[in-house]
Simulated scan of single mutants.
Amino acid sequence: MRKIFIVEDDRFITAIFTMFLRDLGHELVGKASLGREAIEKCKKLKPDVILMDIHLDGELDGIQTAEMLKREMEVPIIYISSDTSSPVIERAIVSNSYGYLVKPINKKELGISIDLAFYKHRVDLEQKEREQGYREFISNSPLPIVVLSKEKITYLNRLGLDIFKTHYIEDVMGMPIKNFVAEEFYEEFSHIIHSSISNDQSIKPFLTKMKTVHGDHYWVEIAGSKVNFNNHQSVQLIFRDVSAYKLSERKNQAYERALFEGENICFVLDNTYKIIRSNTFTSNTLAKETIVGQPFTSLINGTPQWLTELQNIDCKKHKGQRVEVTLCNGKTVKLNLNVVCSVNGVIDQILLT
């Protein structure tokens, strides 16, 4: 049994509906002939389904009344009218009704329409609740999350706004994601997104270059998965800004070139003082074809005090020092000594440059 409310200004038709509803096993909880009256009564009676005539007397027609009701409460509305003109039908479609019955109404059709509207509305409410939970999950996530539908941004959290370097959601909401991907990376980006949707697979982390709303470039690692959002097939993307890592990587490459491609003595030792890396200049200076893998002490004269003291230093507090060493060819050189600590606070590598 459903609780039904009728909004109809024709008493004869209202009487027919009342009889039909009784035969169908539904309860008529109320009726009204004017839009304003219907809104006030429905807020109190909370019907399961509303049957709404489109052409009502008074200031509000049926579609206007339905739109106002939907702002006040969650209820499925079925339009009932003899008017099948295109403008009216279009207005009814835009208002997201749960049905449109053309007068004269058949009892069986009415019963089917009421059941369909009731169950479809229940499914829609469950979907809304899931999406609300999902929105809360996104909003509270400690990671930047962006949702795309048809490659347009349909939702993002506060940290997602930070990724685009803006405080205003209108700067990005509804915009094509293409606007924020570096041009030379967009083809690959688009291919990954489409492949995820078509193959129903999660998006494995990949690296790409993005743009902020101001046009500044930055690097991100993106992972994601396909989701249903606002009843549309969408993609949820989780962003991780790796610009600092990429900058550090470039700096390390520059340091590597300076250390290992330059004309300077350099050694990298492990914590047993075995050489794990050097450069061609050092090998040539020592007249050795290769020195990697050899004990450092085999390439110097004696054991300098600083090398012995390394065993007792506080790795985390070591600020680097200048040391002197005599190579096995008799040449004395001064080198900068720095240590790399392991996660446990012990020496992992020793750099002599």
Rank of each mutant, 00 (worst) to 15 (best):
G320Y: 09
L45H: 10
T154I: 14
C341I: 05
K107T: 04
G174E: 09
L24H: 11
T353P: 00
V227K: 09
E188S: 12
G160Q: 05
D348M: 05
D314K: 15
E289K: 11
K178M: 09
P295L: 11
Q233W: 01
C341M: 06
N301H: 09
F164A: 04
V181L: 10
I192K: 15
I4M: 08
T65I: 04
H217W: 06
T303L: 10
V325C: 12
A244E: 13
I78L: 10
F189C: 04
P205L: 03
S149T: 15
Y218R: 02
N338P: 00
F260D: 01
S86I: 15
L148R: 08
M210G: 03
E170V: 06
V227S: 05
E249W: 04
D200I: 09
N228Y: 10
I291C: 02
G330R: 11
E126F: 07
Q132I: 00
P295V: 02
K178N: 09
T326H: 06
S85L: 05
K319H: 08
Y100R: 03
G30K: 12
Q311M: 07
L159W: 11
D57A: 12
P144G: 05
I265G: 02
D216P: 00
E184A: 10
D115T: 07
N338H: 14
V339P: 01
L337H: 08
I276F: 04
K211P: 02
S139T: 07
V292D: 06
I13P: 00
V339M: 06
S82I: 00
M52R: 04
K46N: 10
A117M: 06
N179R: 15
E59F: 01
K316R: 14
W219K: 01
N140E: 11
K251L: 14
L148V: 04
I89E: 05
E27R: 14
I313Y: 13
I276D: 06
L45E: 14
M73K: 05
H194S: 13
P176D: 11
Y255T: 04
T297E: 14
H167R: 13
P144W: 00
F296N: 02
G302W: 08
T154P: 00
R322P: 00
E221T: 05
I300G: 01
G133P: 01
L28R: 06
M210A: 10
Y273L: 09
S195M: 09
I16W: 07
N252V: 03
R158Q: 12
Y155S: 09
V147E: 07
L51W: 03
M73R: 10
I54F: 00
M73D: 06
Q253K: 13
E131F: 01
N106D: 15
V102P: 02
K107E: 15
W219T: 03
E90L: 08
N157F: 00
R250M: 13
V102F: 00
T326K: 13
T332E: 12
I291L: 06
G30E: 11
M52P: 01
R130D: 08
L45Y: 14
V340I: 14
I238E: 10
G160S: 04
V340K: 15
E183S: 13
W219R: 03
K331E: 15
T65G: 01
T282Y: 08
K317E: 09
K226F: 01
A92H: 02
N271W: 03
N338K: 14
L299R: 02
V343L: 13
K334E: 15
A66G: 10
I4E: 08
S298H: 09
